[in-house]
């Protein structure tokens, strides 16, 4: 079984439409029924799947990290772990003469575990959030989750969410929008990175910075322009200077009467929206061209 093709949709400016495009493309791929598809939503604050698609819950579980726990019987109070902890989570209570671990400060980096020579620090699972696996159609799965711990566990959370097993052909990932460590982690290890840009929100300095960070992490982005009626010459010249290809341009989709909940793909579009349909078919052809199945 070949590894699934990882296609990531990322919007550098939150609200550029990466969520809608990914869900639309997910529905497009599902409708073709060639292969099974999964959608991973890395937005741990605002998961979208259950509000955009009519899905039913198939499986759920906890996202855990291994937190250290101190075994006082074996501790000889050498204080090595307290020195090793960069976050001052391990302290020695002078009056009671034993070591305490402050779980609010602990970031589960395992520096103390690596340091202790007396086997006095063990591991225990600590919950940082939940993941949920939804079924949409026979061949379509949706993975999402919510983080319920400090934000510094977000990276670990996204890592584990993206590692949830799926053995199909396409793995669509909605990256955490904006530029942050969470965004970089959700882009990590992708085959095709699609950056959704709204010309109205283009700013040369910001996008230069984004591109530098993406290149530093060995990503080559492809661009989709959303709401492309607004012509921004600055953006066009920037794309040309940086050798970025525009995969598709999508005119603005005006939704009469707002978006209905649980809308299905053809239904959530106004009739005859050719732009989106053409975008998806060209995107599909591009994906097929880039990732040819061996044999």
């Amino acid at each position: 079984m070949p590894e699934p093709v990882n296609i990531t949709f990322y919007s550098p400016v939150p609200g550029s439409g990466a969520n809608f495009l990914s869900v639309g493309f997910f529905q497009y791929l599902t409708r073709r029924q060639d292969h099974s598809v999964a959608l991973y939503d890395c937005d741990y604050q605002y998961p979208l799947a259950d509000s955009l698609l009519k899905v039913w819950l198939k499986e759920e579980g906890k996202v855990t990290v291994r937190l250290p726990v101190i075994n006082r019987n074996q501790c000889i109070l050498c204080k090595a772990c307290a020195r090793a902890c960069a976050f001052h989570a391990i302290r020695i209570e002078p009056a009671i003469s034993y070591i305490t671990l402050d779980e609010e400060r602990c970031r589960a980096c395992h520096a103390c575990l690596n340091t202790c020579r007396y086997d006095a620090i063990r591991e225990k699972p600590g919950e940082i959030g939940q993941w949920r696996k939804y079924q949409w159609k026979e061949n379509a799965l949706v993975f999402e989750g919510t983080l319920q711990a400090e934000e510094f566990f977000a990276i670990r959370f996204i890592q584990q969410l993206k590692a949830l097993p799926f053995s199909g052909r396409y793995k669509l990932v909605v990256a955490y929008s904006g530029m942050s460590y969470s965004a970089l982690e959700s882009i990590h290890n992708t085959d095709i990175l699609i950056v959704v840009i709204d010309p109205a929100f283009f700013d040369t300095r910001y996008f230069d910075w984004i591109l530098r960070l993406l290149k530093k992490n060995d990503h080559h982005p492809y661009v989709i322009l959303n709401r492309c009626e607004v012509v921004n010459n600055e953006l066009i010249s920037w794309l040309f200077n940086n050798n970025l290809d525009i995969l598709a341009e999508i005119p603005e989709v005006r939704l009469p009467g707002g978006m209905e909940q649980n809308a299905e793909y053809p239904a959530f579009l106004p009739d005859g929206h050719i732009g989106l349909e053409a975008c998806f078919s060209s995107l599909y052809q591009f994906v097929e061209k880039v990732t040819i199945i061996p044999g």
């Binding site: 090793a84 890592q159 992490n217």
Partner: peptide, 24 residues
């Protein structure tokens, strides 16, 4: 434990966004 250090093409790679600066 954070997988902030990777190894590919015979060189050490450092993923800054995963690092918690614990110093291990």
């Amino acid at each position: 434990y954070q997988h902030a250090i990777g190894y590919d093409h015979d060189r050490i790679r450092y993923y800054e966004y995963r690092c918690s600066h614990c110093g291990s």
